[in-house]
Design a protein around this nucleic acid. Structure first.
Lengths: 352, 352
DNA sequence: TGCGAAAATGTACGCGTGTACATTACTTGG
DNA sequence: CCAAGTAATGTACACGCGTACATTTTCGCA
């Protein structure tokens, strides 16, 4: 609890002024080598470390990057895997850049007020995870943009706006998943999508649509289902989808994430339908759980870690440019995703 | 980017001194109701928010709780589920207490220096996740304790020390898992434990041991295996354990966490052994993945969220007491765990 | 009405750092 | 050897808030 030494004491011991100590420690301005050595020696002798609170106050920079964690009812986190990976990526890159990470959990009752975080100087930049396209969110983001605060969305776009965003190429991933099902011989493919408040979902639909279109397969709207990305929502559709399979109306299912796919997979098996044999199934995210199921789940691997890291780069880059307004929607390209084929979509292998 | 109004401006508008503004906003000291109203009105009119950086500097409190995230090679996080749940609990409780969360990722190369975080005033308290009992860790913690900084370990004890810790009752959980296997008719139970650098592992061994002892079942050391809590380490033991099963030398397996259990479950199935029928299997943690497997995995549910929340309470409680030395090893009791029986350990159901 | 105590408010300064500006020491070229 | 220019260092203050202490106001009661 005892306070450590302060700059003044270092200055006294080194026989220089406080300003010189500051210059040495911050590597600013011309300093004679001899002086520098004296100061460093004194600092070391006293075991001096600058007070971050005072530094931040004087610099008017918190040195923090805020990470906004969405609130999801009933669940503590929307997806542990997704979340953990992204967060790790953010943490790694932030650390490299000398920033600390401030975690901000949204609450259901209190309204979003991101600008407050900036105005109180708690954060210098922020990264939003798992946002959804709602009016409240849009207005909160608009305010952020208007006040010129650096922020970055992860895996979410707002149509009509050009907020800084890092994304993976879900259109392509979705296309790959669907094309894969077609490749192995599926003819009629159901699609279990997530809520359209996520731009991800729209992207997935787009990939699904174009893949079918390219092969001349008509898109049957009655084969497109909507869940909420939970395992339960996948499981609850099992009876309906099982019926379609039994009627020969579908032979493949592509689900927008692994959890729904897993729920569906389990539901189907309970109903006597064996994914991988009776129907081909592909999920999305390539989460840890995809390897837990029987059969293991084909999925699309998303570089969540890299998404997090890129978000930091982006948000800090934007910050450096400061008050510029250049090319906000800069298309640095979406990160590539990778289809991973496993047993849940092997059986239909087309005779080649 | 533009700076907001400061206290001085509020004071001027309200026609009072800055000190009065401060008192009103902090609810300190006697203030006439009329004055309070004037100040609040002025603050609202100017849309004033106090600068957190300045507040923290003046108060000499960062208002942050540090959360130490261990470094695990190859994996970005040791266990997404475990981690996410605990973190949510920490976040929730910290928010209630008016603290922010500072995430601190440990690096492999740089040595642990927790005290630095306190000395630079970046955090007021800290919570350690996933620590292991190593000499480096011990010495880092000793230093923290010596300097009197408030900290709390989650799910890890250091034998011989009495650091503040929140734990779940893994001895009992492990006992329950083992007893359950005995209850359903298993006679010889293998135990797949994790590394003993985690006190968790020792606890689990203890529960396993006592459960056997109580039933008069001799503990066969050759049936105790050690993995590293990864799925792979479970899977790689499958051949050996499969042989034991085939030889009738074991009829039940209790694994120290779900991931190992799942790896083992999958490995056994590949070898033609059906958990739940040919052998009873129980995991630990009751992670999301326990419901993904076929058969679903019996497991022991741990209140990770509550562990996180308790850690915050504890660490802030300790902080309030400040320089006291009272009862550091206070036994507030370990949080209860709950056996969840699923298909992987049903078949042996004892005739009752 | 006056007086003491309590309530209410104001004054003044510290917190530890960054940094603009002033000052001093040194270098270099004539 | 001196002047000018640059390198090196020192001085002084701001940053926005909390708060000890001083001061003024209010109130109760004699």
């Amino acid at each position: 609890m005892e306070e450590g030494p302060i700059r003044k004491e270092v200055a006294k011991l080194a026989g220089v002024s406080e300003a010189t100590v500051s210059r040495v420690l911050n590597g600013i301005g011309p300093v004679r080598e001899e002086t520098r050595a004296k100061v460093l020696e004194a600092a070391k002798a006293l075991n001096y470390v600058p007070n971050a609170l005072a530094q931040r106050f004087a610099r008017k920079k918190s040195g923090n990057i805020g990470v906004i964690i969405p609130f999801v009812p009933k669940v503590h986190l929307f997806s542990a895997y997704y979340f953990s990976e992204i967060l790790s990526g953010i943490g790694e890159r932030a650390k490299e850049a000398g920033y600390d990470l401030l975690l901000i959990f949204l609450s259901p009752y209190e309204q979003r007020n991101y600008t407050l975080l900036f105005r109180t100087q708690k954060i210098d930049a922020c990264i939003m995870l798992g946002t959804q396209d709602t009016e409240e969110e849009r207005s909160a983001l608009r305010e952020l943009e208007r006040e010129g605060h650096p922020f970055c969305l992860v895996n979410q776009r707002f149509e009509g706006e050009s907020y800084p965003t890092v994304e993976a190429d879900h259109v392509r991933g979705s296309h790959a998943a669907t094309a894969h099902l077609l490749d192995i011989g599926c003819v009629r493919i159901a699609f279990l999508n997530g809520p359209l408040t996520y731009s991800n979902s729209a992207d997935r639909y787009e990939g699904y649509r174009t893949a079918l279109e390219e092969r001349g397969v008509p898109l049957d709207p009655s084969l497109v289902f909507t869940g909420n990305y939970s395992r339960k929502s996948g499981a609850s559709l099992a009876p309906e989808i099982a019926a379609l399979i039994r009627d020969g109306r579908i032979d493949g299912v592509y689900a927008g994430n692994d959890r729904m796919a897993i729920g569906l997979l389990q539901g189907l098996r309970e109903l006597g339908i064996e994914p991988g044999r009776d129907v081909a199934l592909v999920g999305y995210d390539d989460s840890e759980g995809a390897k837990f199921t029987e059969p293991q789940l084909s999925s699309v691997s998303v570089p969540f870690y890299e998404l997090g890291a890129s978000a930091v780069s982006k948000v800090l880059g934007v910050e450096q440019k400061d008050g510029n307004s250049g090319d906000p929607g800069e298309v640095t390209g979406k990160l590539p995703v990778q289809l991973v084929v496993r047993a849940s979509s092997l059986r239909f292998k087309r005779k080649e």
